[in-house]
């Protein structure tokens, strides 16, 4: 049942890889975010080199975001002007991210960067999800509990280069969406994530976009950044494993419809609470690996064949 991954240069069970893809798909279906932030650490746990896991993950994000974008487009939920503005930052950010990835790879620090990045990312996401589900649970028991304000804006309205975004009903500085796009772009390149779970709160709470438009527009940004990252990783770092990507994408295609079905039936906040614990556990596992004494102090690095 093993399949050889030509770029990762190892053999793995293909049902396992389909399963990992299906888990990411399930996540995408249930919560509307890509699930890449879970997939990359899982791939690293099963032995895929972190550089290959990250670059291949970007390839997988393309598949999960295209159908979402098309569906949102038909419903008119994509603010193209906002999408283009964010994408401007996203393309610059992801391009510089891929080159930074290459530099870190050459100096031998990319694995550490990826591991640290995921420790921080998973801890923050896990903690936020846990807090959110506990809060929902409390509010359920006590409907009178105070609600948070939906959004506040200060900075967004004071910066220059103001633009009108009709569909989002906003008149704000273009610098903010460009900056958000840039930051997510860098993260996408370094960690292989689409970034929906950071992007959506930023668009809703920081920019003040209507939720539906934010969802549609975020998939616009995620798709094109993922395409840019996949292309540049393939050309610059040669780390996209097309066989691995194919298995993850097929698994995802199977998992997504089940995820949407499950989301309708299962109670959301309990599920999110459970998931947040899983995410925190993964963050702790990655962190322990960084602090534990490695089995081998010396390892083999790059080989250069002499002419």
């Amino acid at each position: 049942m093993e399949v050889y991954l030509p770029i990762a240069e190892l053999s793995l069970d293909w049902p396992l890889l389909l399963g990992l893809g299906a888990i990411a798909g399930l996540m995408a279906g249930m919560f509307g975010v890509g699930g890449g932030f879970l997939l990359t650490p899982l791939l690293i746990f099963v032995g895929v080199p972190p550089t290959v896991a990250v670059a291949t993950q970007a390839n997988q994000v393309i598949a999960t975001s295209i159908s979402g974008l098309l569906a949102q487009w038909q419903r008119g939920n994509v603010d193209t002007r906002m999408g283009m503005t964010m994408l401007l930052g996203g393309l610059v950010g992801s391009t510089s991210g891929v080159f930074l990835f290459g530099v870190l790879k050459r100096i031998g620090q990319i694995d550490l960067t990826i591991a640290l990045g995921y420790v921080i990312l998973l801890s923050v996401i896990g903690a936020l999800m846990l807090v959110e589900s506990v809060r929902t649970w409390r509010r359920r028991r006590d409907p009178q509990a105070p609600r948070r304000r939906l959004h506040q804006h200060y900075l967004v309205h004071r910066l220059p280069f103001k633009m009108r975004f009709y569909r989002s009903r906003l008149y704000i500085s273009a610098l903010v969406p460009i900056g958000i796009g840039f930051a997510i772009g860098v993260l996408s390149a370094l960690l292989g994530i689409g970034g929906g779970f950071i992007l959506l709160p930023a668009m809703i709470y920081l920019l003040g976009m209507p939720t539906l438009v934010a969802i549609g527009t975020s998939s616009f940004q995620i798709l094109f950044v993922a395409i840019n990252v996949t292309f540049l990783q393939a050309v610059e770092n040669h780390t996209v494993d097309i066989v691995l990507a194919l298995l993850l994408i097929l698994g995802g295609a199977i998992g997504t419809p089940f995820g949407s079905g499950l989301a309708a039936k299962l109670p959301g906040f309990q599920l999110r609470g459970l998931l947040s614990l899983v995410i925190l556990a993964m963050a702790i596992k990655l962190m322990i690996e960084l602090f534990a004494r490695p089995d081998a102090i010396y390892s083999l690095g790059a080989i250069v064949r002499m002419p």
Binding site: P6, I7, N59, Q60, I62, A63, T64, S65, I66, S67, G68, L70, A71, I227, T230, F231, L232, Q233, A234, V235, H238, V240, I242, A245, L246, I249, L250, G252, A253, T256, P257, S260
Partner: peptide, 30 residues
């Protein structure tokens, strides 16, 4: 493996097209 190194542009385009096609197809079926 060779294509990923020697024809990396074509390889990248192939990877992207594959993802777009399957992602779109799966959404259509879904």
């Amino acid at each position: 493996f060779d294509a990923a190194r020697d024809q990396s542009i074509g390889y990248g385009v192939l990877a992207i097209s594959m993802a777009l096609l399957i992602g779109w197809g799966a959404g259509w079926v879904g």
